[in-house]
Design a protein around this nucleic acid. Structure first.
Lengths: 195, 195
DNA sequence: GATCTAACGCAACTGGAGTTGTCTTTGGAA
DNA sequence: TTCCAAAGACAACTCCAGTTGCGTTAGATC
């Protein structure tokens, strides 16, 4: 996907236009309402071009996802692991509530469940996120708040997992308190030497 | 959905045939490969009938899901909370590895992300599952292994969440050890009074 | 067991997603 | 500047998911 021998000029403009259009369509209509034709029309690029370069809806999402993966995101730094980890989880939670980001993020998760290509892209995305977020835990270890044996990335996973689980699996609402509790639980497990 | 004024006879046969066909198609081709036409052909029911009663693919899944929700599932009873909770989580994990159940279960999760109807059905399903699994925690409280203040259902959620998170969000493999660790983490948090 | 109508079967139709062949434009290297 | 091949535009086409109208079958009620 996206192996272009002409990375500049028109091809680059087309790619950008399509990516923008994909994100905009995703924000408006979600994954269900995403069609290649709509993206083509919105971007001003002909639909055959989109089909030939991206193949289908999943390809569009996978490409947009790669873009999103490279964007840095604000890792909290409150001075304590509690504060930081709670901040990370709350950032995740509130992200899905955001009327702009929420539908797009949800669409990514939905797409990855149906397309191996999108799944790979999302996997890479979370790989990066876990790495970035794990520094919150590593700082906690340096401060002596957590044992040196902790698996920082695993702590992050356990902390954020309940939020995703509620949202996308059990389909329950997720309150700010729920997010905080999830962070605390991961921390308690880490302190107990389980993670 | 499924409000029939003639619940017996032919209608009942049609419903059963379609449900069976839906599960079979799901097991074979997953959610992506599920089409109303294939289900109709496999069940021997005409496609217009399926469209009229179930509306679309999501309706078929929602119906099949209701069926699955009523099926009891084996709650472990090993004598300790550790053993039981680990058993619950491992049961979830191995369920998705099963070549028969795995695709069907995954399809349910995928469908619920795109259809409010399926989402409601899946929510009810997990409501029931949480209730059943929570008894493992309640027994632990009775034995004095956990403080009486614990939220039994929340312990279950936190225990299973990492498995789902890895499978459907981060798209990472989930080992037996991962499942065990997740159960242990939830337990440690419960013992610490966080859950 | 006669009657009524909900539910099913059937065939023809519609619309739109995705494809194909061909021509045009343009990025990039000589 | 020139040249060529990669990439895009365009139109016409295919195919199949989903719809519609109508005739047929068979539960349910009396």
């Amino acid at each position: 996907m996206e192996v272009t021998k002409r990375p500049g000029g028109r091809s680059a403009r087309v790619r950008d236009a399509v990516r923008q259009a994909t994100l905009a369509e995703l924000a408006e209509h979600g994954f269900r309402g995403l069609t290649v034709e709509n993206v083509a029309e919105r971007s001003g690029v002909h639909k055959t071009t989109v089909y030939r370069r991206w193949g289908n809806v999943e390809g569009l999402i996978a490409d947009a996802l790669e873009l999103a993966a490279h964007e840095p995101w604000p890792v909290p730094d409150t001075g304590t692991v509690e504060g930081d980890l709670r901040g990370v989880v709350e950032l995740v939670r509130s992200g899905f509530e955001d009327p702009e980001l929420g539908p797009v993020s949800s669409a990514f998760v939905a797409a990855a469940m149906q397309s191996p290509e999108a799944a790979r892209a999302l996997h890479a995305f979370f790989e990066a996120r876990h790495d970035q977020s794990a520094q919150v835990v590593r700082r906690g270890v340096e401060r002596g708040e957590l044992p040196v044996t902790v698996d920082a990335r695993e702590v992050v996973r356990v902390a954020v997992a309940p939020v995703y689980y509620r949202l996308f699996v059990a389909h329950e609402p997720v309150s700010r308190e729920d997010a905080g509790r999830a962070a605390d639980a991961a921390l308690a497990a880490a302190r107990a030497g389980v993670l």
